[in-house]
Design a protein around this nucleic acid. Structure first.
Lengths: 120, 120
DNA sequence: ACAACTGTATTATTGTAGTGATACAGTAAT
DNA sequence: ATTACTGTATCACTACAATAATACAGTTGT
């Protein structure tokens, strides 16, 4: 994982997305310990406070949880990890197709562009 | 055009994108007069100041230009309108594919998802 | 028990996007 | 010329994200 954030965009959502990607890639499996607030803060060049907030947001979604003093862990619930992956793919794909359709592109045209840009 | 902005995200980029989409759709053609700062402000429920800033950003990119007292217009340069469309498609498509590849999806898998979600 | 790590909380401060109000200046139609 | 529209500029204000510094509390390994 790179942890090179775009400092010109809100950081919390970016940190959340990075974590979700790692879970969706199965780099982080259910129950795994994840990097500490301070550790990520150092790598991502942000304040521990910012990472804390990001983690708390993901906790609210049931994706991760904390044990005071021990650390943060990926939810043991197997379904959630799968959902994170499915949701990520679904939302990104739907958003992409919607954007292209707004321009008036047909389904075939969209498929053509995707094929074209995959070979690069 | 809807002008229903997401108030929880930065507004200027959203206004810029809406304009670019209208140009990419050919709803606005080179030389066309576009809605005034105050008009858009009213429709989008934002401050004229915010729209002004957005327009100035697009002006810097050469997409539109202003005539003091008269209004804002789409650049007469034909190439720019075409570029806006091409750039929009290219950047969105590349971003989408990159996101999917990060998850480990193959080209075929990506194409399959796109086809699947187009039929909905 | 101790040291070194964890999460958590608080406070003050900074930077910035957007608001709201107002004013001035140029254009265009009547 | 007047009126009603444009763009442009400024100022004080609000809201919020993120920083920076610090402190406290719980866990873990030695």
């Amino acid at each position: 994982m790179d942890w090179e954030l775009d400092k010109k965009r809100p950081l919390c959502p970016q940190i959340c997305e990075q974590l979700c990607i790692m879970i969706a890639r199965d780099d982080l499996k259910p129950g795994d310990k994840i990097m500490s607030v301070r550790e990520v803060a150092l790598l991502a060049q942000v304040t521990p406070n910012t990472v804390q907030k990001s983690y708390e947001q993901l906790e609210q979604q049931g994706v991760i949880y904390s044990r005071r003093g021990a650390g943060w862990f990926v939810s043991e619930n197997q379904e959630i990890a799968q959902d994170v992956r499915k949701q990520y793919i679904r939302s990104k794909t739907e958003e992409y197709i919607r954007n292209m359709q707004i321009l008036g592109l047909t389904g075939d045209e969209i498929e053509t562009y995707v094929k074209e840009f995959i070979n690069e």
